[in-house]
């Protein structure tokens, strides 16, 4: 009984704080994306050689932890299958945040565009039972500015 109450409290805490953090994070992501919209991002590997250009490696990485509520819902989802919508929003946040951090670095170097952008995703604590799962997303590319 005590275990159950403890579990429900954890679930409630996970839900309340997880949702609050997620909402706040999305607001901040949308805000900063507007500020960094002038930096163009391409997955194209070849940089068009119209001018003399300088390229530097820029990267941005983010680690987001899964809250207790999301983990529980995702574990239930594992039993029956289907879209794990609890994790979808988490990964969406992580990807966009990583690209934003990369763009911020590009802005600091004075670049106007980033080429050959790649995204890497890895899970931290993979396979470790009873530990809080977290996901890392790394975005990197070549920031280009006229010489």
């Amino acid at each position: 009984m005590v275990d159950l109450i403890f579990f429900l409290v954890l679930l409630l805490l996970g839900y309340v704080f997880g949702q609050r953090a997620e909402k706040r994070h999305f607001r901040s992501i949308i805000e900063r994306e507007k500020q960094l919209r002038d930096i163009l991002v391409f997955s194209e590997r070849r940089i068009p050689d119209e001018d003399k250009l300088d390229g530097t490696l820029v990267c941005g990485s983010v680690v987001v932890s899964v809250d207790f509520f999301k983990r529980f819902v995702a574990n239930l989802r594992n039993l029956v299958g289907g879209r794990v919508s609890a994790y979808e929003s988490l990964l969406e946040r992580a990807r966009r945040e990583a690209i934003l951090r990369m763009k911020e670095e590009a802005r600091r170097t004075g670049a106007k565009s980033v080429w050959n952008i790649r995204l890497e995703t890895s899970s931290i604590y993979k396979g470790a039972q009873q530990s809080i799962g977290a996901v890392e997303v790394l975005a990197y590319g070549t920031a280009v500015k006229p010489r």
């Binding site: 819902v73 979808e88 565009s113």
Partner: peptide
């Protein structure tokens, strides 16, 4: 690079629109 532009992308295209509590209630 004038021929490129960065259009605003609509929100929520990569996330299922289910409310987390509804998902939770259905699963439980």
């Amino acid at each position: 690079m004038a021929e490129y532009e960065n259009p605003e992308i609509p929100e929520g295209i990569n996330v299922s629109p289910t409310h987390p509590l509804k998902d939770f209630a259905l699963l439980v």
